[in-house]
Amino acid sequence: MTRGVRGATTVNRNEENQIIEETRKVLEEMISKNEIEPESISHVFISATKDLNAVFPAKALRKLPGFTYVPVMCMSEMDVPGALPYCIRIMMVVNTEKEQQEIHHVFHNNAVKLRPDLIKKRGE
C-alpha cells in the first residue's frame, strides 16, 4: 500500500541554512517515526510559500544518507491570503504496511497550526 506522510515547518527568514536545517529536522522525524527506508519512498513533493526562495528545500533530503535516488520535486505553495508565511510543506509517498491511522505526520514550529488534529502525542 502507498501512504502519504505529511510534514511541515516554518522558518524565521528567507535564509539558505535555516531553510535546509528546518527542512532536515522535519524529514528526519518523518522518516524515524514512520520507520521509512529510502527504497520504500515513491516520491517526495516539497512546497514553499512565495516568501521563501533562497534555496530549494529538497537540498535537505539530498544530505541524508541513502537518499540520492529518491525522486523529489520542489514547488510553490498556493498564495492564499492569510496563509501561514515562511512555510515549507512536505508530502512523502511511501510503500508501507501501516494503516492510515498509524502514520505519524510531523509539524514543527508555527506549522503545528496547520493540522493540530494530525499531531500524535508521545506513545500514540
Rank of each mutant, 00 (worst) to 15 (best):
M1W: 13
R3S: 13
R3Y: 12
G4Y: 01
G4F: 12
G4H: 09
A8R: 15
T9H: 00
T10L: 07
V11M: 13
R13L: 13
R13A: 15
N14M: 03
N17I: 08
Q18M: 13
I20A: 12
E21Q: 06
E21V: 14
E22P: 02
T23R: 06
K25G: 06
L27A: 09
L27G: 09
M30K: 08
I31C: 12
I31G: 03
S32H: 02
S32G: 10
K33L: 07
N34L: 11
E37D: 11
I41Q: 01
S42P: 00
I46G: 03
S47R: 04
A48Y: 11
A48Q: 08
T49Q: 04
L52P: 10
L52N: 02
N53F: 10
F56E: 07
F56A: 11
P57E: 01
P57K: 02
A58L: 08
K59D: 00
L61V: 09
R62C: 03
R62T: 00
K63A: 09
L64T: 05
F67G: 03
T68E: 02
T68G: 07
Y69F: 09
V72D: 05
M75A: 01
M78S: 10
D79F: 11
D79Y: 02
P85N: 09
Y86R: 02
R89E: 02
R89P: 03
I90G: 06
M91P: 00
M91R: 04
M92I: 08
N95E: 03
E97I: 15
E97D: 00
K98P: 03
E99P: 06
E102N: 14
I103V: 08
V106C: 14
A111S: 15
K113D: 05
L114A: 11
L114I: 04
L114P: 07
R115V: 03
D117F: 15
L118Y: 07
G123E: 06
G123T: 03
